Each structure stands twice: as structure tokens, then as C-alpha cells.
Computed example of a mutant assay.
Amino acid sequence: MTKKIVNYILFITFTLFAVIQLNDPDSILWFSIYFFVALICLIANFKTIPKSILIITITGLLAFSAFHFSLFIDYLHTENKEEIFGAMVYEKPYLEGTREFIGLLIAAVGVIYQLKKPKRIQE
């Protein structure tokens, strides 16, 4: 029962992530990523998702996050860390890249959670 509740929370969270992306220039890409993860979390409450689909999704999310890793490293070398919470600044692409990197890692963790087997009630 606990996994179902967590999955509903994850579904709502990733759906909100997806909706927030609608104001981005590349909104279709990011909306699709987050909404796909949201659907995985929802569907997992009703049906077993094949492990191969989960692993392919996790691999894709982590591979895509690797493209943003250098921007994340650039961000780590800045002094003003709270900039990450501000507006996008075109002169500082590492801000958006870091947000995307972290978002993809969070999405991957949401899918990794689906690999966790529910505990059986011992009789």
C-alpha cells in the first residue's frame, strides 16, 4: 500500500514538473520526458511494467543527463549558487543546464523506484 501512495505522489510531482515546462522554448521535449515518467509512476499502481522498459528509460534519462554534466560542473565552480533559483540568464547557460541535469536525475530516481519490489504480507 505504501508504494501505491508514493507512486501517486510521484505521479503528481512529475505531472507538475511537466506542466511547469510548458513555458520553455523546448517545452515539448521536457514536458514529454516528465509526463512519461509521471505515467510510469501511475501505471505501476495498476500493472507491472516490464523491467526492460524501466531499465531502458533509466538508461535514457541518465544518458541525456550526461550531456548536461559539464554545465553542472561549471555551476559548481561559481560563487553565487543561489542563482539556480532565479531567472534564466542567456549569458549563463550553466544555470539551465544544471536545472536540466538535476531534473533528469530526479526523474531517473523516480523510475528506479519502480524497480523496487513491493513487500509481501507475511502470514
Rank of each mutant, 00 (worst) to 15 (best):
T2D: 15
K3L: 15
K4M: 00
I5Q: 07
I5T: 12
V6S: 14
N7E: 08
N7Q: 12
Y8K: 01
Y8T: 01
Y8W: 06
I9S: 14
L10C: 11
L10Q: 11
L10A: 12
F11V: 12
F11M: 12
T13A: 15
F14L: 02
T15V: 02
A18S: 15
A18F: 14
V19A: 10
V19P: 01
V19K: 01
V19C: 02
Q21P: 13
Q21W: 09
Q21T: 15
L22N: 13
L22R: 12
L22A: 11
D24F: 06
D26K: 07
D26N: 14
D26H: 09
D26Y: 08
D26V: 05
D26L: 08
S27E: 04
F31W: 03
S32M: 10
S32T: 15
S32I: 07
I33G: 10
I33D: 09
I33S: 06
F36G: 13
A38I: 06
I40W: 08
I40L: 15
L42Q: 00
L42W: 02
I43F: 05
A44Y: 04
N45K: 06
F46Q: 12
F46D: 10
K47Q: 11
K47S: 08
T48A: 10
I49A: 00
P50S: 07
P50W: 02
K51P: 01
I53S: 13
L54Q: 14
L54S: 10
L54D: 08
L54Y: 08
I56C: 14
T57G: 13
I58Q: 09
T59A: 14
T59L: 11
G60T: 11
L61D: 03
A63K: 05
F64C: 04
S65K: 02
F67R: 07
H68Y: 12
S70V: 09
S70F: 10
S70H: 13
S70A: 12
L71A: 05
L71F: 03
I73R: 09
D74A: 13
D74R: 13
D74F: 04
Y75R: 08
L76K: 09
H77Y: 00
E79Y: 05
N80F: 08
N80S: 12
E82K: 03
E83G: 06
I84V: 09
F85L: 15
G86W: 00
G86V: 02
M88H: 14
V89P: 02
V89W: 02
V89Y: 07
V89Q: 14
Y90S: 15
E91D: 10
E91L: 00
P93H: 03
P93M: 01
P93I: 01
Y94N: 12
E96C: 00
G97M: 05
G97L: 04
T98K: 06
T98D: 07
T98N: 08
T98M: 05
T98G: 09
R99M: 03
I102Q: 11
I102F: 09
G103R: 03
L104F: 12
L105T: 00
I106Q: 03
I106N: 06
A107W: 10
A108G: 04
A108I: 01
A108F: 02
A108V: 05
G110D: 11
V111D: 09
I112N: 02
I112P: 03
I112S: 09
Y113G: 07
Y113C: 07
L115F: 04
L115Y: 02
L115M: 06
L115A: 02
K116N: 01
K116Y: 01
P118W: 00
K119Q: 08
K119T: 12
R120I: 13
R120T: 14
Q122L: 14
Q122G: 08
E123S: 05
